[in-house]
Amino acid sequence: MFTVKGVKLSSIIGAAPAYIEDNLMNPIFNDLYDAEKYVKTVGVRYRRIADESTCTADLFVPAFNKQMELLNWDKDEVGILIVITQTPEYVSPLQSIILQDRLGLKKTCLCLDVPLGCSGYIYGNFLIASLMQSHQIKKGVLLTGDTLTKQASKKDRSTQPLFSDAATATAFELDTTASDMFFDLGNDGSGFKNIMVKDGGYRNRFSEESLKYVDKGEGVCLRGIDTIMIGMDVFSFAISTAPKTVNQLISKYNIDADSVDYFVFHQANMFLNEMIRKRLKLPVEKVPYSLHDYGNSASATIPITILDKIQNEIQEKSLKMIFSGFGVGLSWGAMYIETKNVVVCPIIHI
């Protein structure tokens, strides 16, 4: 449990590829009935897909530039840049350092990468706000997102129709009048095999073998470089852990849950997210979804959902919100934040 004081979330900007694929036309399904059932239960109709030459970094750049323009910030004012992605341009060096130059940030801007997935937005908010508070860094930007479709096997029903690409920029600034942010964070490495990419690190070096498809049964055929997801175990983890982390946050900080305007969850899949919502006894209108049009884009889903569904409200009103993310690691977290007139714009399609 952590509290961060005096840091305001100033802006959220999102970018996603303009190219869309429709799951109703997805050849991975047996027929239209099969596809319709998937769309209805998992919730994903359209997926945004970056082409081979477009990296997550190429989506971060327009989101960041738009943010600077709307906030009217001088780039030299940005004292910290944190990038959360599992799909950087290179294994080394850090994406954030490459972006420091590309975005035109000063050389003393603190640059950090955190390769988290679905819990990344929560950890990102925690890390950037904590460092800004501790070291009185006046302005900072958190970039979260992935081109996750590049990690999904074209022959894997558990990931191919689910994953989508998106990137977001969230800006923060020191503000003594900002409400406290509260965090509940956790992880369990015993479940690391439940969602993973096996090859390409130093345990299993990339090799010719990494490119060979292996049939795992039940509609899953993948290569060593693809994401493997043990769906049933991930589901089991998430239906118990997500409600627990939200409840811990609420009870530890005596949050009046009824006064919370929105609960924005990582967009895992509709079937799972609805179980979590029902378990927490949350009304439908307080739990927005962007799965239908934007799929699952790991650490980008929470800000993308805000922009897709409550953009006007977060811009015009003060909102009390709880965010929760959970997934690869296994890693999870929940946070409470009160926002006021957040600078936003419609999701940029590139």
């Binding site: 043990i230 769906g231 049933m232 175990d233 089991s236 239906i239 118990s240 079937f271 179980m275």
Partner: peptide, 25 residues
């Protein structure tokens, strides 16, 4: 089907207070 399997996991977790793993299913 795969969704019934997920419902089974949820039923065990929420109503029976038991964990059932993918391997057990």
């Amino acid at each position: 089907d795969s969704l019934t399997a997920l419902s089974l996991i949820a039923h065990f977790d929420m109503n029976l207070n038991k964990k059932i793993s993918g391997d057990q299913i």
